[in-house]
Structures are given as C-alpha cells and as structure tokens.
Simulated scan of single mutants.
Amino acid sequence: MGTRKFQGIYQLHYEEAMGKIQTGDLLFCSGSYLVSELIKKASNSFMSHVAFLFEWYDRVLVFESVESMGVRIVPLLHYMTNYKNTGKKYNGGLFIARHEKLIDSYFDQTLLKNMIRTGIDSLNRNYDQTEIIRILTRIKLGVGKHKEDNYEYICSEFVDYCFQQIGVRFPRTMEGFIYPEHIAADSNVYPMFEIVS
C-alpha cells in the first residue's frame, strides 16, 4: 500500500485549504460508502477515488469521473457541505496532493491549459462500468485486460488521461489497469494535507 504516506498528514480547515490549492492538484478520497469500501478492498488501498482540481473565478472545482454521471465538474465546497445534494459532507477523508511536475516554478503553463481543455472536452463522457467488471474479474479470477481508448473512464483513468497532456503517465498493473492507489502511490505525488470542516 503506497498510500501510507497520506496517513497522519496534517489537517486544514476548508477555508484555509483554499489558499493553498492550485490548478492541477489531486484530490484523493477515502470514502466510507459501500462502493468506496469495495474499491479499497479490491485495490488493497486506503484510497477509493481520485480527481483533480482547478481554480476558476475564486472557486476550486473538482474534475472527476463518477459512476452515476461520468465525467463532471463540481465545486469542492459540495464535497464539504452538500455531497450528492444530500446536505451532508462527504463521508470519508479528503486529501490534497501535488505532482512534482507542478511544483517546478518553470513549468509550462500552456501544458496545464491543455490538461484543462482535455478535461473540458471529456465532460459528459460515460463512466466505464465494464472496466470495473474487468478489474474485479482480474482480481478474482486472474483474467482480463484493460481496454485502451474507449473514451469511457473510471476515475483514475480520467485523471491519467488528463495528466498525459502535461507529460505524466501514472503507473498501472501489468494488465494495464490503473486504480486511485497507483496515482497516490506514485513517488512523484506529494501529499499536502487533509481537508476537514
């Protein structure tokens, strides 16, 4: 489990965290929902979901691919106050990390804009339900392979696809699958803090 580096990191309240987040930062979730627990167990990980963040008009927005909608944008504030329009906070831990490439002060901002454009062009693409079945089949039976370029994404595939626009390709299994664990455990991904309300 490469995500141990996230356990015990310092916590920041949402308001303070907003001043430290920058476009391209990663959001990792360790959910307590049934699907989240299944993902954590299947991937032997502390993390159940990954997305990336961007700033827009003094708001921090989450770019993600979710089971119910596919690729979408939602305010990070909704994770803190109104997750899935329930009027409640996300049930689990929310962690912010930054890829080493985005720490470099000489990083080409044009590449970052290309990453955001790629995310926007992917809006409303479907969540890849069959990929989840392939992953579970591989875990349980040891068979199956990832299908490239079907333009449907699980969360970690979407993040990987967008980050490829800045020259980053995250590790994956020998069969080509990528889980939130692979992105979180990448040695170039640095935990920053856990957001709390």
Rank of each mutant, 00 (worst) to 15 (best):
72 R>E: 09
164 Q>L: 05
8 G>P: 07
163 F>Q: 01
11 Q>G: 10
157 E>K: 01
163 F>K: 05
142 G>T: 13
39 I>T: 03
178 I>G: 00
128 D>F: 03
161 Y>H: 12
148 E>V: 05
40 K>G: 01
177 F>H: 10
83 Y>T: 06
147 K>Q: 05
90 Y>V: 12
98 R>H: 13
72 R>P: 02
122 S>W: 08
52 F>T: 06
62 V>P: 01
15 E>G: 02
71 V>S: 02
57 Y>F: 01
36 S>N: 09
98 R>P: 10
186 D>R: 12
146 H>R: 04
144 G>T: 06
7 Q>S: 03
192 M>Q: 09
78 H>Y: 11
18 M>A: 02
166 I>Q: 04
75 P>W: 03
178 I>F: 00
106 Y>A: 13
143 V>W: 10
175 E>C: 08
132 I>V: 12
139 I>M: 11
25 D>H: 13
24 G>N: 10
133 I>K: 00
47 M>A: 09
195 I>Q: 05
173 T>E: 11
91 N>E: 15
38 L>M: 11
45 S>C: 08
112 L>F: 03
75 P>T: 08
146 H>V: 08
194 E>W: 12
153 Y>K: 05
117 R>G: 03
13 H>R: 13
157 E>F: 02
38 L>W: 08
45 S>V: 09
104 D>E: 12
47 M>V: 14
156 S>F: 03
170 F>E: 15
138 R>G: 14
171 P>C: 13
56 W>N: 15
144 G>Q: 08
143 V>G: 00
186 D>F: 10
104 D>G: 05
84 K>I: 12
14 Y>C: 04
34 L>N: 01
73 I>Q: 07
97 A>H: 10
134 R>V: 01
54 F>P: 04
118 T>E: 03
157 E>L: 00
195 I>F: 09
94 L>I: 15
159 V>D: 03
69 M>Y: 14
161 Y>A: 02
158 F>M: 03
113 K>N: 14
23 T>V: 11
172 R>E: 13
152 E>V: 05
151 Y>E: 14
97 A>V: 14
160 D>L: 05
142 G>A: 07
76 L>A: 04
169 R>V: 15
22 Q>V: 15
140 K>G: 14
94 L>K: 15
170 F>P: 15
4 R>P: 00
35 V>Q: 00
113 K>C: 07
101 K>I: 15
110 T>Y: 05
28 F>P: 08
62 V>T: 09
156 S>D: 06
178 I>N: 03
68 S>N: 08
84 K>T: 08
39 I>V: 13
110 T>Q: 09
114 N>E: 14
51 A>Q: 05
186 D>M: 09
116 I>G: 04
3 T>H: 00
17 A>W: 11
173 T>H: 07
142 G>R: 11
133 I>E: 00
90 Y>K: 12
150 N>W: 06
192 M>P: 07
68 S>F: 04
59 R>W: 02
28 F>R: 04
194 E>I: 11
134 R>H: 11
83 Y>W: 14
51 A>W: 06
